[in-house]
Structures are given as structure tokens and as C-alpha cells.
Design a protein around this nucleic acid. Structure first.
Lengths: 335, 335
DNA sequence: TGCTGGTGCTGAAACGTTTCATTAACTCTG
DNA sequence: CAGAGTTAATGAAACGTTTCAGCACCAGCA
């Protein structure tokens, strides 16, 4: 019943405790016969290594954590899948934590992760202002890689997609199609991606003196928020209402789309919509959604690789910042 | 730099090591003044408790794992969110593992979790045949709760939704609407849910002697599989082609929908579709999808509660099996 | 024969907690 | 004021590993 320990295995095989450990960790150092005897004992007792003890000794765990803004957002699940591939291939374990865009929950997770002395953390922080908290972890010697967030400081690696470019692409496209009253929907602006995409949108609009870019801030980036925000827009008099909406992510866009079509407005005729992330469901929406595509799994893979690299290299690791280019996918919702 | 240990805190506060531990775990046993001195030392040194050591001593960790078939499936992310709520409220941590419907990966995860001596496991197994592996864990004293999977044995708790009823509801509805050539799309049948939903579908069809229920087995339950399967159905001569498709989950259904509309067949006129799970995106699809709704978050919450209950009660715990009722949501895709 | 160098194994220390039997110092009580 | 009882703090053991210095033994060599 109770799990057997190395000591019992040693006893059963008639060798010392250190020898069993050697069989487990450097089998080539143990004579053939002894090794076999130990392996037999392990099988007989159903011994399973105790990772807790192992990592206590090692001082740091091999498991790696990823903290995302929303597990239910397909964008992040794809990032997670990418990271998983790399981490699992390295024989480690990836634990997924969900901050739900709530900094208290993010804090709580980071605390627990620090207590667990995890081997590293991939994170998309709830707000740009959270850098100090992350710094503390870095000072403690826990490697941190920022996901979907640009350079900034030199104290950690990061992978990101050029969000400003994404914003420019999206709004540039809408402007080219003749839209002049455009709304940017997203929030909170404390999230760097939300702010950067807006910056790009602004930059694009600046090139058209007659264009007007308004902002509707949302409390988060969910379908429900999109629906709610759309209710306001929809009830505006048609003359002042924006003719196009650029949403900070696809969940918002899908919410807007649902609400708008429920109110008998036509997309894109009455209002065009462009989303962001190009999640799998964007193309399958009631009106297939134009969206800014990001290399989601790639993002996760690269982040995980940077983390492993850092863990391997230790002190003389050079922090790197990888930036990917987004790509606009035009579909019916803006055509 | 290096994290301070209890020993250093004790030194700094001028007390013994045991006293610091008491401050941390039973503060009421320590005199006011001493306690304050220790707390000050903790703050001064930035001490963070080492969970690894703690759990080595305790023999079992407080963290709990959930192993799902597909992190990218919104059904599971909702289950995860439900479980999260309960586990976090209890001060523990939930780690999410993704088996990707692959039993080798599932095995690997379970091995690692066993090595980590986790406090418990919530799991939707890759196949019904995996019971023996789970049994081993249970014998080791790790509580296991089956998620989305019915009674079976008495050796563990489970939460489930009545999948047979779900299948009956879906196909019963299609039959009532006059469909007589119905395809069931899903797989692999080793997954209990896939088999049970089919059983329900069969039972419903049995009541209509002129009805014909065919099966198209898929290798997994993803959008891509749905699209691929639909390609075959679509190219059949209209006379023999099923007039309705019941899919084992919504991802498949969305895939079918995409492919079918791309081929200029109309839904539901040329072919009706009913999905399963009623994920958030089902209602927002090109043609809003009829689906069998399950209480997803509730499922996760209840599973987590059963697990905590079992962990609390220890040996004299009575295993329980909770079964929820599904509900058919009829939308345009079958109307 | 005595030395040198391997090889294969042992035994103990260390990782950072928690727990528990002891001890030390007081406060009552009769 | 001796003894009992209470309270607060101590110190050591234990959890299951990994690591490393050291020991025993043997082969090869001069």
C-alpha cells in the first residue's frame, strides 16, 4: 500500500541505498549483475520515484508553469499546446494556471509557484504594471519568459507578436474599404496588447484626416463583454454610429457579431467587424470573421524553448526577445 | 539571492527552528512578542516557505491535477474553470494536463503525477479500457475522480452527464422532424462518451422501423476531423446521403458545418446538424448549432468537491456517483 | 613483494520542513 | 514553600532523495 522507498528497494536487493540511486541515475556506473538485481527489486516492490524528495535535494523543480489570462480563450489554449510540445519533449511537466485577467489571482498563483520552487514561468501578465512582481521572482532565480509581450527590460526573455503592426493592418484595411467612423473595442488598457493594438490603430487612422477613431473600453476580453458593448453601439442613431468595429480579440468580435445580427443589422453592410487572433472559430462564425492572425502555437513553442535554454545556460544566459509578424486575414465580416 | 530557509529566520529572530514553524502553522501557540519577532525576521529576509520540503514531510502534496482529453476544446476549458473555483477556494492548486486523446501521453502524465505524489486526480480517461491504470493509482492511495464518466465500479467517485439520454434527445428530435436517414459522427468508440451517445441514438432510432442510423467513425473529436468526415458525406449521391448528422461533440459539428456550407449545401434544408456540449461558439456559428447542453462548469465543480471530500474523509469515505441530466437546445441547424 | 590505478560499492551528509517528546520557567494551590 | 500544573520554547528525528568522499578488492607492473 504505502509506496516503497529507495531504502526498501536497497534492502530487498541486498545493496546499499546509494547503489540504487546510481542504478536510477547513472546505470553505467553499476556492474551488470547488481544492476539487474536492483531492477528486479524495483519491479517486485512497484517502486515509484518520489519527485518531491528529489527536488528538495535539487533545490528546484523540473516542472514549468504557464500563467495565462484566460484558459477558455482559444488563443491561449493554442499557446499552451505549443509550449506543451516543447516542455514534454524535454521530459518536464507543464502546469497551466489561469489568472482570469485578475491580478489578485495572478499574485496568488505566482506565490504558490514560488513556494513550489518551479523551474520556470511563462506568463502573460494581467497588466503591464506587474513588472515589479515578476522582477522579484527573477531575483529569486526563477527564470521568467514573457509571452505575447514585447521587449521592455533586459532582465528576461520574451516572445511577442508586433501588436502595433496588427492594429495598423486591421484599421488600415478598414480605411481602405472606405470606413471613416471606426470604433476600437477592447480593454482594460492596462493589458499591453490592448494598448498596443490601439496604438497601431491610431497610427493608421492618423494617415486619413477625415477618419475618426473612437474607443469603447471593455472590462475584459470575453464574448459576453463584446455582446454588452455592442448593445450600446447598436442603439446609436445610424448617422453617428461607427461603420466598422475593430476588436482587440476574437472573443469580443464574436460577441459583437452575435448582438449585431440579433438586432437585424447586417455585417458587413451596416457594420464591418475585424477581430484579432484568428482563433479556429473565427472562420466558422455566422459571418466569417476577418481577423489578425498570430502564430499561436509557435509563440508557445518559442517561449518554452527560451525558458529551457535559460534554465540550461544558467548565469551566463543572454536574454532574447523574439518578435513575430501578424498577418491580416480578410473574410466576409469586412468585405 | 538564495531563498532563505526557516533556519535562517530562526537565527535572525533569535529563536529555535521549531518556533518559527509554530508561528507559521499554529501561531496561537506562540507568545505575542516572540511571534512578532519571528514575523519581522520573515519580512526582513523575504522568506518564502518551501512547499517541496513541506510536502516531503507530509507525504502527499496539496496540489490536485485534472487530466483532460483536449485543452483546446471549450467543453473541457469550462470544466477546468469549474474545478478551479473549488480547488482554489480550498487553497490548493489545480494543474491542468492534456492527454490529447492519446493514451501514451495520458500514461506519461499519470506517471509524473504519481511521482509527484499529487493529492488527487480528476480525469476523463482516453478510453474505457484504462481503468486498470487508474486502479493502480487508487491502490497507491491517490484519490481519483472520474469526470464525465458514469458509475462503473465502486472504487472511486465520478461525475457524469447521462450521455445515453443526450443521444436519445438529439436523435429523437431529428426523427420527430421527419429525418429517416441519420448519420452518427464520432470516435473513437473507446471513449465512453462516444459509445454512450451512440447507444442513446440507437435506442431512439429503434422506435422508428423505417429509420436508418449509420455510423461514421472519426479518429478524434476535433474540427478538422469533422471537416474531413463531412467531405465523404457530401460527395455521396443525394438519394442515399443522410439528411441529418448527429455529432458526438460540437467541434465535429462545427467542422461538418464549415465543410457542408463550403460545398453549397444548405443547413438545415439539405442536411440538418445536431452537436453535443453546447459550447459558447455553437450559438455563434454560421448556422447556429443545435446541441445537447451539459452543465460544464458544474461538472468540474462537483468533481473537485468530491475529490476534496475524499481527501478529507480518508479511509472511511463513501464513493459517490453524481449524474446530471443533459438538455437539448434546438437552434437553426436542425429547424 | 609492494605500489599504483581502477572499479564497484558503501555510508553519511544535506536539502527544508513538521512534529513531538522534553525541558525550562512560571503560577497556583494547599 | 514544596509540588502540581500550565505555558512557551527547544532540539532532534523523520520524510526520500542525491552526492561525494572513502573503502575494499583486484589486476598489472616493476
Amino acid at each position: 500500500m504505502a509506496a516503497a522507498s529507495i531504502k526498501e528497494v536497497a534492502q530487498h536487493a541486498g545493496v546499499s541505498l546509494g547503489t540504487v540511486s546510481n542504478v536510477l541515475n547513472r546505470p553505467e556506473m553499476v556492474a551488470e549483475g547488481t544492476r539487474q538485481r536492483v531492477l528486479d527489486a524495483i519491479a517486485a516492490l512497484g517502486y515509484v520515484r518520489n519527485d518531491t524528495a528529489r527536488h528538495l535535494r535539487a533545490g528546484r523543480s523540473r516542472t514549468v508553469a504557464i500563467v495565462v489570462l484566460d484558459v477558455a480563450n482559444p488563443f491561449f489554449t493554442d499557446v499552451v499546446r505549443g509550449a506543451e510540445q516543447v516542455i514534454e519533449a524535454a521530459g518536464s511537466m507543464l502546469v497551466v494556471c489561469n489568472s482570469g485577467e485578475d491580478s489578485a489571482r495572478e499574485d496568488r498563483h505566482l506565490e504558490l509557484l514560488e513556494e513550489q520552487r518551479v523551474g520556470g514561468i511563462l506568463i502573460t501578465p494581467v497588466a503591464d504594471a506587474r513588472q515589479p512582481v515578476l522582477h522579484r521572482l527573477i531575483e529569486r532565480g526563477i527564470p521568467v519568459v514573457l509571452v505575447d509581450r514585447g521587449a521592455g527590460t533586459a532582465s528576461r526573455c520574451s516572445v511577442a507578436v508586433d501588436d502595433e503592426l496588427g492594429g495598423r493592418l486591421a484599421v488600415g484595411h478598414l480605411l481602405e474599404r472606405g470606413h471613416r467612423r471606426i470604433a476600437y473595442l477592447g480593454g482594460p488598457f492596462g493589458i499591453a496588447q490592448v494598448a498596443d493594438r490601439y496604438a497601431g490603430a491610431s497610427a493608421a487612422a492618423a494617415g486619413y484626416p477625415d477618419a475618426k477613431l473612437t474607443v469603447a473600453e471593455t472590462p475584459n476580453l470575453t464574448v459576453a463583454s463584446g455582446r454588452k458593448a455592442a448593445q450600446k453601439l447598436v442603439t446609436m442613431p445610424a448617422a453617428g454610429r461607427p461603420t466598422a468595429i475593430f476588436c482587440a480579440n476574437d472573443l469580443l468580435a464574436l460577441g459583437v457579431l452575435q448582438e449585431v445580427t440579433a438586432r437585424d443589422l447586417r455585417v458587413p453592410h451596416d457594420v464591418a467587424i475585424v477581430g484579432y487572433d484568428d482563433i479556429e472559430f473565427a472562420g466558422a462564425a455566422a459571418v466569417p470573421l476577418s481577423s489578425v492572425r498570430q502564430p499561436r502555437e509557435q509563440l508557445g513553442r518559442t517561449a518554452a524553448e527560451l525558458l529551457l535554454e535559460e534554465a540550461r545556460e544558467g548565469a551566463d544566459h543572454q536574454h532574447r526577445h523574439v518578435v513575430f509578424q501578424p498577418e491580416l486575414v480578410v473574410r466576409e465580416s469586412s468585405r
